[in-house]
């Protein structure tokens, strides 16, 4: 199982947390696609609390976190 924690506007129309069944090769890109979130809309991508790369394969039990960009002043 992969746990996905969503933050800020990524929660709109979704839950705070969503889960995906693990399969070999599942990665951040697959999860974004299923969540209908564009890659360019993700500012922070964490795997188990650490900075991650969307294209790296995930492991069963991983938790990923997705934050949208905040840029105003």
């Amino acid at each position: 199982m992969i746990k996905v924690k969503l933050f800020a506007t990524f929660r709109e129309g979704r839950q705070k947390e969503v889960y995906f069944d693990y399969f070999e090769g599942i990665d951040g890109k697959y999860i974004l696609d299923k969540l209908d979130i564009k890659e360019e809309d993700v500012a922070i991508y964490l795997v188990n609390g650490m900075d991650g790369k969307l294209e790296n394969p995930l492991n069963d039990g991983d938790t990923i976190s997705l934050f949208p960009p905040v840029g105003g002043g």
Partner: peptide
């Protein structure tokens, strides 16, 4: 990351 251009 990911060359984000604009914020929410």
């Amino acid at each position: 990351k990911n060359k984000v251009q604009k914020g929410i």
